[in-house]
Simulated scan of single mutants.
Amino acid sequence: MASTDRYPRQAATLALAHALSAAERGLAVIPLSRTKLPALRSPHRDDPVPAGPPCHGECGRLGHGVYDASTDPARIRELFGAAPWATGYGIACGLPPHHLIGVDLDIKSDTDSAASLRALALRHRFTVPPTIIVLTPSGGRHLWLTGPPDVVVPNSAGRLAPGIDIRGAGGYLVGPGSRTAHGVYATAPGTARLAPAPCPRSLLRLLLPPPRPHRSGGAVSTAGDAHGRGLVQFVLAAHEGQRNTRLFWAACRAFEDGIGPELTEDLIAAAVRTGLTAREARGTLASAARMTTHRLTTHRLTRDAPGAPDAPDAPDTPG
C-alpha cells in the first residue's frame, strides 16, 4: 500500500512547494486537482440558488475557488492540507501587486494562435515584451503580463482571436510545476527569472469591453457624471449585511453603462469604507463584469434573432 500511495504524496508535496515559491513572488495561489480545476469543492454546492451575488468566502469556509487564493504561507498550507489530492496550483489573476493577465495561446489543429497574436501585434502596432512563458502539456503557451491597478480585465475565450483565451480578474493560470492528467506545466527556458512584463497599451485596449452608449440621450457616460457619483453613493449607504449586494448591483449598472473600468477604483474605495476588504470588492467587481458581459451578449442574440419581439428591458432594482 505504501508504494501505491507514494506518488500522490510526492505530487502533493511538490505542488505545495511550487505554490509557496510562487507566493514568495507575490502571486496568490490555490490548490488544483489533476483536472486543472480547484481541488476543493464549493461548500455551497447543495445550497438553494441564492437571491443575491454568490459567496466569495464571506462564510469563512474553504472551497471558493480563485477567491480562496492567498500569498500567506499559513493559509496556503491550510488549503493544501484540506486537499491532499492536489497535484498542482492555480495563480489568481487581477490581484495586487502584479494584477496578472494571462494570454493563453492554445494549440488546435485548425488554429495557429501564435500567428494570430503576431498578426494582432502588427495590425495594432505593439510588441509583446520579454516575460514569463509557461509551456502547457498540449504544446500551448501561457504569456504572463501585468495590468494597471485601476483596470479590470475580464476573462474571455476566443474573443481576441481564435485560439487565444484571456485570463483576467476572477480567473487563474495553472502554475509551472503543476502536474495534471495530461502532463506537467513548465516554465519556458530563459523566462523563469523574468518578472511579468507590463501589458502593451494597444493590447490592453483590445482586452477591455468596448464602452457602451448611455441609454439616455446616446452620449457616452463618464465616471465623473451624476450617474457614476450616484452609484458610488449607493454603495456608501450600505449597512452590514447588504454591502456586497449593493456593490454587486452598482458594479453591474456601471459595466452595463460602459463606465465600469473608469468607476472601478471609486467603487472599491466606497466598499472599503463600508467594511469590505479591497480584495473582496475586486472579486465582486470581477463577478459583475463577467455576469454583465454574459447577460448583454445573451440579450443581443435574443434581440437579433428572427422574430424576436421589440420589447424594452425590464428595469433593474437593487436587491
Rank of each mutant, 00 (worst) to 15 (best):
P198G: 11
P198H: 04
P198Q: 09
C199F: 04
C199T: 11
C199R: 10
P200L: 02
P200A: 03
R201K: 04
R201V: 10
S202M: 06
S202E: 14
L204S: 04
R205S: 04
R205I: 00
L206G: 02
L206W: 00
L207C: 01
L207P: 01
L207A: 01
L207H: 00
L208Y: 00
P209K: 06
P209R: 07
P210F: 00
P211K: 12
R212W: 00
R212L: 04
R212N: 01
P213A: 12
H214Y: 05
H214G: 15
H214R: 02
H214E: 02
R215W: 08
R215Y: 05
G218N: 08
V220Y: 13
V220M: 15
V220F: 13
S221Q: 10
S221A: 15
S221M: 12
T222L: 09
A223C: 13
A223G: 15
G224M: 04
G224V: 06
G224E: 14
G224Q: 10
D225P: 07
D225V: 11
D225E: 12
D225S: 08
D225G: 09
A226D: 14
H227Y: 14
G230N: 11
G230I: 10
G230A: 12
L231E: 13
L231G: 06
V232N: 03
V232M: 07
F234Y: 08
F234Q: 08
F234A: 12
F234H: 15
V235M: 02
L236E: 15
A237D: 15
A237L: 12
A237M: 10
A237V: 01
A237Q: 13
A238P: 06
H239W: 02
E240N: 10
E240P: 03
R243I: 07
N244Y: 05
R246N: 15
L247K: 01
A250R: 04
A250H: 04
A251E: 03
A251K: 07
C252W: 00
R253L: 13
F255R: 04
E256K: 06
E256F: 06
E256G: 07
E256W: 07
D257P: 00
D257M: 04
I259M: 11
I259W: 12
I259G: 07
P261L: 06
P261F: 01
P261Y: 05
P261Q: 09
E262L: 08
L263D: 09
E265P: 04
A269Y: 03
A269D: 15
A270Q: 09
A271H: 10
V272G: 04
V272W: 02
V272R: 11
R273V: 10
R273N: 12
R273I: 07
T274F: 08
G275L: 13
G275V: 13
G275F: 09
L276K: 06
R279V: 13
R279I: 10
E280G: 04
A281W: 09
G283V: 09
G283Q: 13
L285E: 11
A286L: 07
S287K: 09
S287V: 13
